[in-house]
Amino acid sequence: MTATTEINKIINEDNLVYKKTNLLLDNEMHYCPGCTHGVIHKVIAEVIDEMDIQNETIGVSPVGCSVLAYNYIDIDWQEAAHGRAPALATATSRLMPEKYVFTYQGDGDLASIGCAEIIHACNRGENIVVFFVNNAIYGMTGGQMAPTTLEGQVTATTPYGRNTALNGHTMKITEMIALLPGTRYVTRQSAETPAAVRKLKKAVRKAFENTTEKKGLSFIEIVGTCSSGWKLTPTQSNEWMKENMFPFYQLGTLKDE
């Protein structure tokens, strides 16, 4: 038997173990090659599909690279002004308390311009899920400093590296958020290996189940890469992330009540 015929025998519906969920639309993603957003979108779509809550879920997309997230997951979406997604989600969840409402925000959107909105939504304990994608840089505008940019990290607006005297300190907003009594589940995940993706998926599932149980706010930070902003290849980016991001942004669950 030739190799090709053997492969063709394996490729049939009975042997299918992994395919794109129907909740991911066929639109080609606009993200750069290797971008973590794609993996996170997929995981969220898979969980919504598996929980069978497509018709009860409303996503709120941010301003930033993931502004067009609504083109990829087949649910109802609201597109927020920069940083304001938690305000939209607050109203949506309060007006339709039986729905699953989540925001999807980057580090500029959530930790910089939308700092007030996220802190207060967390403090009120809104019954929503927040996905916070931290790649320590502004992607869409071309690689400028974010609040989460590491000390010494070179960006378009810190061309000599982030200098804390000049640019302020690197912000661990997830640790701040974990202190707020309104948050119930605060975790920091990643998505660079199959094991990490599986763990992330468990966290996403738990967060949406918290909504079912009306537990309050679940907050998932995903430490990700931005190969265009970091000026590295996707695989180099993962290595850079492990070496530089993980020691500072330690993975794990900060709070689970």
Partner: peptide, 16 residues
Amino acid sequence: ESEVAAINMVYGGASC
């Protein structure tokens, strides 16, 4: 928490 948040809550609610 602010007028900015309030009007964006209006946006979220109106979207529903």
